[in-house]
Amino acid sequence: MSTQPEQLAEPGTLRQQHQREPAPVAAAPGRRLEALTPYLFLAPYLLLFTVFVLVPAIYGFWISLHSWDFLLPAKPFVGFQNYTSLFTEGSLTGFNFWQSMRATWTFVAYSVPLLLVIPLLVALVLNRSFPGRTVFRAIYFAPYVLGVAVIGILFRFLLDTNIGLLNSFLGALGIDRIAWLSEIPWVWVSLVGATVWWTLGFNAIIYLAGLQDIGRDQYEAAEVDGANAWNKFWHITIPGLRPVLVLVTTITILASANMFGQSLLISQGAPGNATRTAIMYIAEEGLGSFRMGNAAAMSYLLMLFLIATSLAVFAFFRRWED
């Protein structure tokens, strides 16, 4: 604070500063600059963070306290009503919001374990040396580069109940038509399956990087001690992957909780609104019906849930470390 006294506006303040700590300012300007260095490096990011995250977040909270349509002159202040209405029995927004939250957590519960385990298995295989390894690494990662619109249309045609490829194959095997896109639980199988196929390559690559960080010598030492494959996996690989696991678990939960495109394009929320996720409903409410106050309040609630979940993940892994 006192490093750049010439910028302080009031001479009085300046004098007080000098009275309190006169020596360092005059004596060691170089060391002061050194102390500033990390902040200077952080400044560009901090600026972007402030402009594009912090300010909109605070503004969003302000919006959530109003009945807000940016085009209407009247934006009446409603206090916490947008929040309380979400907890009021018989409120339509509340009903829809919790239904969409249920859909969101259903998707998280089905998709996250698969997205943690399957990519790990893929990474373990791809970490071994065998001919064509690079090709297979590319193949498993390839779907991830596709956009969600491509994935959506692709799976809609593959999974169509009456004219889709999958049911046509199943029919040839004598299996009845399955309503992949419009019946519970099949629609969840479709959404989770499409997402796992689409994104497993990303998690696998992170796992692979983690696996390559584990020293060969540890495995060799274990072999000398007579450890079998399972012992090595459980006592060397998994602990060695711990930091990577924290990362993968957290980002996978967040990504699954923010699922939007797959539901919108593949199932369109069907049947009823059973697969309409929270983000989908928030977008509908805010950008479709222009009730941005409501939408902002729901976003904040969703954010609180996600923060709590992330903290729980960190706590779990910290305990595991101990």
Binding site: R156, T161, N162, I163, G164, R177, A179, S182, E183, Q268
Partner: peptide
């Protein structure tokens, strides 16, 4: 009608002669 007609399947089935 078949059950569980998906989005646009009615239209595509018309084009396919089904």
């Amino acid at each position: 009608s078949p059950a569980n007609v998906d989005q646009d399947a009615d239209h595509i089935a018309f084009q396919n002669g089904e």
